[in-house]
Write a protein that binds this DNA or RNA. Structure first.
Lengths: 193, 193
DNA sequence: CAATTCCGGTGACCTTTGTCATGTCATTAA
DNA sequence: TTAATGACATGACAAAGGTCACCGGAATTG
């Protein structure tokens, strides 16, 4: 049922023919993920590419002090996975955890490669996804080295209202690279303006 | 002459046939860039994808206070360009400047798209480039939100010795997101260990 | 429903990093 | 060769952000 959401999603980029749709229906499989469950844990190889149909995820790294650093979130119509581990088949240093009960569609690496070979249209579509992700991360790096934490917080609020409104401040602080206490200070200052 | 470097470079990824090589020779053109010259300036649309044959470049943004923030460097065998401007044909907010006399090979967007359509092997090769770039930026974001400036400086030194040894500390500081004065403090501390 | 966990805020104190002015030396330009 | 510019370091002072302990309330779990 949810597979049609994914087909719709691809159709927004490039119209799919029946053979392409059949391939999608055949190779993607649906999974229910409960809150606090993982679809990737550090040390494991990331063998699946994941499309979020419903719910919210965070991909994070735990540093040597045990502190968690959120690299990215993913909500409906977003893809998530550790592409480094996925393509190089090496153990991931990242974790992907459901922040609420979620539904995803997943495809194995070998099936995704078949998809690209047998249906080159997907090669193009996925390259656009990767490019868009790269652009986002470049902007994020620039922002991290040129803006204050307050500016980054306001920008996050503006840019991702659908995420901002459903995750806790602790998670936002981790994503921005500040402590929850400091974020609280920022919020207090902003509420006075 | 330098075009053969590029062909060699591609050959490391996937063996090229004669037709593919002919296309490369035909569509890429060489350019000499003097130190302090730009191959992209903010406000212009980035219409060229650039491969560095010799030399060193930096891609940076100037913030509203006039401060320059280095997003990335590029030396021999690296690609550089503002992919956001390149693909969406919108004015760039970035500048790409030669840090020393350099030689590059460049291809226009429409030729690159022809390359992908007529020679799908390049679609795959460039997707690998984009994925590798994305992985680098993800790691950089993680590092920026979880490490001290000192740790980032040491990592930069280890990871990019070929860049580290040919650019000034002012440029490194800008890339790391710290002031030159603070970097000087870090270096002093390190030289005492 | 009770116990536990998590979230959000607070405050004292500390560390990291920034600002600004200054001086010296190296490099570049005229 | 000289003048100008840029790089690098320094130090006093300031700002941004972190640490730690604590408290109250909301959400989650059993």
């Amino acid at each position: 049922m949810h597979i049609e959401s994914l087909i719709s999603y691809f159709d927004n980029y490039l119209r799919l023919d029946e053979e392409e749709k059949a391939f999608i229906r055949k190779k993607f499989f649906e999974k229910q993920v409960k809150r606090r469950q993982f679809i990737l844990q550090e040390g494991d190889v990331c063998r699946l590419n994941t499309f979020v149909v419903a719910g919210c995820f965070r991909m994070y790294m735990v540093d040597e002090k045990g502190k968690e650093h959120n690299l990215q979130f993913a909500i409906e119509n977003w893809w998530i996975g550790d592409i480094d581990s996925f393509h190089k088949e090496k153990p991931s240093k990242l974790n992907i955890e459901a922040m609420e009960n979620s539904i995803v569609l997943q495809i194995r690496k070998e099936d995704q490669l078949r998809l690209f070979v047998e249906h080159p249209k997907f090669n193009r579509i996925f390259r656009v996804f990767t490019e868009n992700a790269l652009i986002s991360f470049q902007n994020r790096v620039l922002q991290n080295i040129s803006s204050t934490a307050e500016e980054r917080y306001l920008d996050f609020m503006d840019r991702y209202p659908n995420i901002f409104n459903r995750i806790s401040n602790v998670q936002i602080a981790s994503y921005l690279g500040v402590t929850p206490e400091f974020l609280s200070t920022i919020r207090k200052k902003l509420s006075r303006s």
